[in-house]
């Protein structure tokens, strides 16, 4: 498949048309790729050494960035929450509210978006470069399935590492919350953690992991499908990278809300 070039004239209708067409194409290609990848995984076509190498690249190397992002998001959010709750004299529930926000929304989103920026863009750039320099063609001539060889290990690595990173982001956010509660609201750590324990349910963990798996699927599948379907010259690497970041980030926010709406909407 080849994506249409964005060489439309400054005509709003044709702009919308080509924008919509390439959107449908990317989405469709990604769904097909997801099915192909799942089928290969279910039939055991897995190179575990490559999976562990990718887990290192995708996961381990992301810990610093995810940690910093989660820490400062945690600081800012806890500060706001602590401030309002103290006004209402509800400082003992700071822990509960902060941890709810973290486990249900902020943890998965922070890890997902950070990975989209760090890993999604890198995968799209790498695969596009491989496409342009005929490396993917070379695989096909050697009768090696590029999906099995390139996508399966990255997807499995994403599925393993994303939940770990999400839980990690949540924990770092919690540490930030404990700090803020202590310094801004003078709340002891024990009170904070008590409130956390009373508020968080098993279901919150389930939803947390569902979101992590969905985010992994979005980041890896969109960036792989965009990378594998972009051809042309060197400038297309940049285009593919941008495209991958835009698509993965947008989809993470959209699907995050869909899961939230399906699981937490008041009935």
């Amino acid at each position: 498949m080849q994506l249409p070039a964005n060489n439309h004239r400054l005509n709003p209708i044709s702009f919308l048309e080509s924008w919509f067409a390439s959107g449908v194409q990317i989405f469709g290609h990604t769904i097909i790729l997801l099915f192909a990848t799942t089928k290969l995984i279910l039939t055991g076509k897995i190179d575990w050494r490559e999976v562990s190498r990718q887990s290192y690249m995708i996961g381990v190397k992301s810990f610093a960035v995810v940690g910093i992002t989660a820490l400062f998001t945690g600081f800012a959010m806890s500060l706001q929450i602590a401030r309002e709750l103290v006004l209402f004299g509800a400082d003992t529930s700071i822990g509960g509210v902060v941890s709810l926000a973290l486990i249900r929304e902020i943890g998965p989103i922070t890890a997902g978006v950070t990975l989209a920026g760090r890993v999604g863009s890198a995968i799209a750039a790498e695969l596009t470069t491989m496409n342009i320099t005929e490396q993917i063609d070379a695989l096909e001539v050697m009768r090696i399935d590029p999906v099995e060889f390139l996508v399966v290990p990255r997807y499995l690595a994403g599925l393993f590492m994303m939940p770990v990173l999400s839980i990690y982001a949540m924990s770092i956010g919690l540490i930030a919350g404990i700090n803020i509660a202590h310094s801004a609201a003078n709340l002891p750590m024990a009170t904070f953690l008590d409130s956390v324990k009373q508020t968080i349910l098993d279901r919150d963990f389930t939803v947390h992991f569902i979101k992590a798996f969905i985010n992994a699927t979005i980041v890896i599948m969109f960036s792989c499908s965009i990378g594998l379907s972009t051809r042309g010259g060197a400038e297309d690497v940049g285009i593919a990278t941008t495209r991958a970041i835009v698509w993965t980030m947008t989809m993470i926010f959209v699907f995050n809300y869909i899961v939230t709406a399906l699981t937490y909407a008041p009935r």
């Binding site: 790498e126 470069t129 491989m130 320099t133 005929e134 490396q135 070379a138 001539v141 050697m142």
Partner: peptide
Amino acid sequence: LVFQSSALLNSLTVRQNLALPLRL
């Protein structure tokens, strides 16, 4: 196929590149 552009896999060593056609 000897590609005009070589088309070696950049992320693999020479040994790993040569192992590819032998996988099957």
